[in-house]
């Protein structure tokens, strides 16, 4: 019997190599990396990408971590580029992320992806949008957010609610003024009570409370939210109370993942494989799943 050829199908676990082009420290433990493919072929393979997808990032010798693709790879500065640039924002919290933060410009890491489904941005055309990000949850929203801001004329009013535990923990502070400058975009920043500083000029309050205080009528509006499980729990209560229907609310499920292709079994929520069927879900879809996330 003939043997199967060595690798008749591509090895999905083998990462592409990317070089750290630049990085930016958002907070004392959160960093945004800017990455370019080392090999030109891999750039071409990367053509199919949508906001909301994620990747597996490898530190050789340490392991892999999952981060959202935090930008528009083909329009990294709002201008079209010949080669894609991937940005990811991560907190140094475990073995791999600490090792990644110890790396500097010019060093090589691995990337595989993009994986998962994506934000249904085409369904939002003409509608008012609210992006609500808690802490590093903003990273999962940033790709969609930048895409919407880039094509602002195709959407209604946009409110961006960026919340953090404290002023020092707030991400994307450098670029929020640029978002605010776009006509029809309003940025609201808030920190948890006790997290403010003397010269803090944003809101003070938990995200769900601040959201309620904005009095945004649910009428046709889409809410896109990402943050820690406890924040989402209270945010959904607030959304229900203020008349939002579960179909109007989009979030991302953030589970522990390893393979990224629906095989390793780690990210299941009932029959739902977060890496393959998610990570983007509506609140309505979430209600159909067992409370196991």
């Amino acid at each position: 019997m003939p043997l199967a050829e060595a690798f008749p199908i591509p090895n999905p676990y083998q990462p592409s190599l990317m070089r750290i082009d630049d990085f930016f420290d958002e907070t004392s433990d959160v960093r945004t990396l800017r990455l370019r493919f080392v090999d030109g072929d891999e750039e071409r393979e990367f053509s199919g990408w949508e906001p909301g997808q994620f990747g597996q990032f490898t530190v050789f010798g340490a392991g892999e971590s999952v981060f959202a693709l935090a930008n528009q790879p083909w329009r990294p500065n709002g201008n079209s580029e010949d080669t894609p640039i991937i940005e990811c924002t991560f907190r140094a919290i475990g073995k791999v992320t600490h090792a990644l933060r110890d790396m500097s410009e010019g060093q090589v890491i691995g990337f595989r992806g993009p994986y998962g489904n994506h934000f249904p941005i085409d369904d939002w055309l003409g509608k008012d949008l609210v992006f609500i990000g808690g802490g590093i949850g903003m990273a999962a929203l940033r790709s969609a957010l930048l895409d919407v801001i880039d094509r602002k004329q195709e959407f209604g009013d946009v409110v961006i609610l960026n919340g953090a535990r404290s002023v020092a923990d707030m991400v994307y502070t450098e670029e929020m003024p640029r978002w605010q400058d776009v006509d029809g975009v309003r940025v609201v920043r808030t920190v948890d009570p006790g997290g403010e500083t003397e010269d803090w000029d944003g809101e003070v309050g938990l995200l769900p409370n601040v959201f309620e205080g904005l009095n945004l009528e649910p009428d046709g509006r889409i809410v896109v939210a990402c943050g820690p499980p406890i924040m989402l729990h209270y945010l959904f209560l607030s959304l229900g109370k203020t008349g939002y229907s579960p179909e109007q609310v989009v979030t991302t499920l953030e589970n522990k993942m390893k393979c990224g292709i629906g095989h390793c079994g780690r990210c299941y929520v009932g029959p739902f494989s977060v890496c393959r069927d998610g990570p983007v879900v509506t609140w309505a879809e979430l209600n159909e799943l067992p409370k196991d996330y």
């Binding site: 490898t58 050789f60 010798g61 340490a62 390893k258 393979c259 780690r266």
Partner: peptide, 16 residues
């Protein structure tokens, strides 16, 4: 069929 993935490595080489 659940599995884990980890890097086993030294300073010169390794494997996923």
């Amino acid at each position: 069929s659940c599995f884990d993935m980890n890097h086993e490595a030294n300073a010169w080489c390794g494997e996923q």
